[in-house]
Design a binder for these strands. Sequence first.
DNA 1: ACCATCTCGCAACAGATGTTTCATCGCGCC
DNA 2: GGCGCGATGAAACATCTGTTGCGAGATGGT
Lengths: 288, 288
Amino acid sequence: MVEDQPIAALRRALPGLPPRLQAAARFVARHDFDAATRSMRELAAAAGASPATFTRLAQALGYAGWDGLRAALIETRRPPATPFSRRVSPASAPPTAADIPARLLEADAASLGGLEAAPIAAAAGALHAAPRIWVAGFRSCRGIAQLLHYQLRLFRPADIALVGGAGPEDLDLGALAAGDAMVVIGFAPYSRQSLRAARVALEAGCRLVVLADAPAAPIAEGAEHLLLFEAAAGPGFFPSLTGALATAQALAAACFALGGEPALARLRATEARLAALAEYLPDPETSS
Amino acid sequence: MVEDQPIAALRRALPGLPPRLQAAARFVARHDFDAATRSMRELAAAAGASPATFTRLAQALGYAGWDGLRAALIETRRPPATPFSRRVSPASAPPTAADIPARLLEADAASLGGLEAAPIAAAAGALHAAPRIWVAGFRSCRGIAQLLHYQLRLFRPADIALVGGAGPEDLDLGALAAGDAMVVIGFAPYSRQSLRAARVALEAGCRLVVLADAPAAPIAEGAEHLLLFEAAAGPGFFPSLTGALATAQALAAACFALGGEPALARLRATEARLAALAEYLPDPETSS
DNA sequence: ACCATCTCGCAACAGATGTTTCATCGCGCC
DNA sequence: GGCGCGATGAAACATCTGTTGCGAGATGGT
């Protein structure tokens, strides 16, 4: 009988097996990933056994041959359909209107755990080196793009532009220059606008940084840096943008850090100007 | 040059590849686990391409052959040797530019934990009952406001307005009517614009919902509902908006849930219209 | 309209794969 | 001690692997 959990079947059958088969079985149990990926002969060499042993082991477990066992091992290792999110509430109870917020917040918190910092720092390097930075995000990602645009302008006032931010976007896309950096933000389903922005940027010779929800995203094609976030679909609602925002913010912060003293100086200048214009209310804590 | 992150190399090289190689590359990117485990010929059959295509793809990426690429894909999927060796960043190390993103993401994840769901659901009730909803957010909160505005309009197209979204904001503020709901988003330091929006809304007899970072926030004065979020200040940088975004999204979702069948119908209509306009790219997974 | 170049499927290729056979070995039993 | 039987490894086997040479077709530049 073919088992759906090969390693369990293996362990169960272990005591009744001849010595060499036992050794092979233990080796497979301890290196199941290698058993699934490497060839039988390589495995035999690593385990110090004969290739035939592994065929016999598989047959002893009820598989037609080694290929059968390996196929089962592979299926065990196959990642779940949902990329890197723990399903939030296992028992999907009826989504009462009252606990929708709780569910969503829970999902958001979980999605932030999957973000990686290293690629963000690398992407920030590309932005830092670019003479001009364009930011593109459309529809639901527009807000995120605007935010990134705003934060970057705090310390790089003159050379950051939001695609489609001041007039028709084709004018912006026509102004792209080689060496500029383009940041495109999007997730499935991907808007045509975002794809066009990415494509045009590539053709113009820009350095492309993409924030997306999947490595296979169309807008990610040709990107120099791809920053993945999880657009966790809420309970029956549209996807969450928290991961995208956190990524964008981290990108801006890293960029600022790279800017060093000049960036800090420009940020201070911006703050001083805002204070002079009385854009913000005075902090009652410090003014009293 | 052989890349250590094969999918990234693949994505980068994609635009410069011939059509069939592009198709193969996309297929590999979307099914990287199968590419790592199944044989090249099986893959070719599944992708509807010639086996040779995959060899050529690997070579185009700088690998000696398909085996090289597959080995790289396998290494990408290999589980970490020590399962739960989550490196915890030692507290208050020197804030290197490289680990700024990590710090920020960590802070974001922590800040989401403090959010409460119950007030959000209550506030959603107020929005749901209002004949018209205004959303106000300025400067760094503009993006958040825009996002909330966008999401609400998905299922309540006609009666949501962004203050200052289409022309001078005083015109919007002049149009406020008693019974309308006003959502104001802001955190310290509070912009004069946001305070004015809140004040005017109160005077006009609107129901005021405020998203802020402190109970003592000026813009929260007189608010019917106050949704607190944590604007965690990053390492030497401006505050994080993740909490505000998560709150806004949860608010929109709760509002949608309250809308019941009509809201769902309007959302479906919106989606159908977008699909008809081909605003979004078709999902390759379902179309093929 | 021409030609050079590139693309790409087909089919033959050498090599590697998993399997099987077979002779040998070790071990317990009569 | 002789015998039978399962375990074991080496080698031969058919099959499948990834690769490459070839030619038809498409493409782009002049």
